[in-house]
Design a protein around this nucleic acid. Sequence first.
RNA 1: CGGGGCGUAGCGCAGGGGCUAGCGCACCUGGUUUGGGACCAGGGGGUCGCCGGUUCAAAUCCGGCCGCCCCGACCA
Length: 467
Amino acid sequence: MADRITPREKDFSQWYLDIIQHAKLADYSPVKGCMVIRPNGYALWEVVQRELDKRFKETGHRNAYFPIFIPESFLNKEKEHVEGFAPECAVVTHGGGKKLEEPLIVRPTSETIINSMYSKWIQSYRDLPVLINQWANVVRWEMRTRPFLRTTEFLWQEGHTCHETEEEAMRETLKMLDIYRMFIEDVLAIPTIPGEKTANEKFAGAEKTFSIELLLQDNKALQGCTSHYFGTRFAKAFDIKFQSREGKQEYVHQTSWGMSTRIVGALIMSHSDDKGLVLPPKAAPVPVVIVPIQKKGGENSQVLETAARIKADIGKKVTVELDDREGFSPGYKFTEWEILGIPLRIELGARDLEQGVVTVAPRVGEKVQVKIAEVEAYVEKGLATLQKDLYRKAKTFMDANIHVEDDYATFKKRLESEGGLYLLPYDEKDTTFEKRLKEECKATIRCLPFNQSGIPGERRALVGLSY
RNA sequence: CGGGGCGUAGCGCAGGGGCUAGCGCACCUGGUUUGGGACCAGGGGGUCGCCGGUUCAAAUCCGGCCGCCCCGACCA
């Protein structure tokens, strides 16, 4: 028997790494901090790409691609931006065997290179809005890395838009945040807490940063994505002006928004258990697998034919795989598909056929026998139920672990013993609060939630430990 | 950069001056199997992280270096 997955109870961090190894999602690479995303893991990213890309296009965005190399001087054009990113940039100093005249930054994010192009492309209000997204890799030289959650190189999408007015840009910023929210909740079945970042935590160069915070199984928070309102700061730095309807020269109002391969880490951590990965059906590259149980030397043709017929029926609606590999016992296959997190497994052997049924085993829940004629309908319903149940379970967990707390000492004690998220009174004029949180509790303000405090008109800070 | 751990077969590990370096899993061949990680038999696979030293003899002892993982500081 292969070595087991470390139980969550024993060592959550090791459990996470074990899931990634056992489910063959990723592997360590020869380069420190970089990971190899294996086919099983990449398939999850492809789900994210497919679902988000669809939503971006439905809202009028188009994809483009900008270079990975950025002249060093570009980064220096926006003061906060360079201060934020310069320390973690990889820099190319040589090319073609010669020292470069100007070093090239490997993009940590693409605001600068994209905005340099926007300044050429935009002349008139008729050129607006510009709604561009790019799927790309970026590099940030982080000190401490962890597969999917934080790697030196990671994959993401970054949307960069330009608008005529402040109102329109702000609407875009919040619209994209909401698209992320719906995607995370509907597809990944993870409950969300959207909100605004504090001045201290906002993106380097942004006027306002919004994020979606998630609570993982170990009661720590994770930022799932961000959406920034830039105002005209980059427009001024890169001279992106347009002639307005009134004939005046004005700076464009901008946004940017991104989601990275980190979200795959969130997906892994949100639903999985000690047996392996658990995928919500909509996030599963293959939601259904059929395992025919064959008898050596017996008549398997009927089992295999029925399995193939069921596959064809179900396959009209969802992706389904037929695991007819020989030389692997049913038990081995069951375990393997469980580690891979396949939502529904259909078992089918001679014993079932005699009764005209198949055995359906959901990844979470009990096995049931279903009449062959009803399998197709059952699968559709079963997947929907599973999707809903996983979300509800995660939501129940999150709700049980967000506490409205007025007393700092009580909060501190509670955070230490049980983790979780806390809605604390927040005064943005108190500049020492965040520092105190960090030094005394190792906690950060995750965000100022839009509507979580439950007290109308009162703004509270969502505080907790995070990745 | 600080703290901890580890480098021996693809993976997980044992061996701690001496004979042909070993175990489990994985892999290959043949056979028997197949309703929760099947069994039997045979087989392949090693620069014991690297460099240097001590010694008749080093995976083993000593020195140096390198690398990786985990925990902190930085962050999507």
